[in-house]
Amino acid sequence: MYAPKKIVNDPRNVVDELLEGMTLAGDGRLKQISGGRGIIRTDLPPDRVAVLIGGGSGHEPVFHGFVGPGMGDGAACGNIFAAPAPNIVFDVAQAIHRGRGVLFVYGNYAGDIMNFDMAAELCEEDGIAVQTVRVWDDITSAPPSEMDKRRGIAGDLLVIKVAGAAARTFGTLEEVAAATARGRDAIRSIGVAVRAGSIPETGHPTFDLGDDEIEIGMGAHGEPGVERTKLMPADPLVDNMMERLFADLPLAKGDKVCLVLNDLGSTTMMELYIVNRRVRQILDARGIEVYRTEAGRFVACQEMAGFSITLMKLDEELAGYLDQPADTLGYRRLG
């Protein structure tokens, strides 16, 4: 096991220092609230349903890196890999609420569910309407019959993108939530871990993986996957992952998809494009059209090496949401 080398100060301060630096990188368009643990837009447009995103820190750019026009209005930021406390979520909800309710969008983890639900109760007592869409795209974390037990991974990017676009499109919380849930339901992901990331404060890797091993389906926090195997070349690995995706998300000739290739922290763009080459060979052979490709780091786990493949089956409505402009630190799209 290699020793992690991180460019940090006191490891106990990583979250505070990261959020301060990230807010400054917003060049005036972001500000910190709630003891620094909430990040909100300074340029909130009036009279819209608010989109509140959030989760544990350490997965940047998600979630706080997706605050900005066309995506989240504010983010509640937890400690490393831990859900934000309810009062942070509540403070952010109050700050971004513009009279039309707040949509919570976050990954489907027990800690997040409990803390966001507690925050939703605080909002309710304060007269703020809340609806929730949890991201659950990781196909290896539960069978299709238990979709609502699946973890949220790189699908976060697309669900937040849809939520932001829907908030621009619709006037009511119910409509925005319904559109966001429709987008969520069209998304499936699968990941592979090559090497663990480590927790800054302990310096310990989140899991053990042999030097010559990989694990298919391993979660962003090192939750175990479905198959541990020897390191193999990119093409057969992609073949294996794509087979599993097709088994879960039926796609027919002529279908359109959005494809996301996500670096889990320290897999290179070189590798992602080598993966993309094989993914496209497979999709082309099946007559599936790629409407949009996003390759990069969106949902990471510190210096974890590995990547995930996400497919979102598109119809005109969902494609329209992806087409709308977005301008955040972690994701930008021209309109």
Partner: peptide, 11 residues
């Protein structure tokens, strides 16, 4: 509740 976060904070 105000500081811990995560599942442990909620529980």
């Amino acid at each position: 509740m105000k500081t811990s976060g995560g599942a442990c904070g909620a529980v």
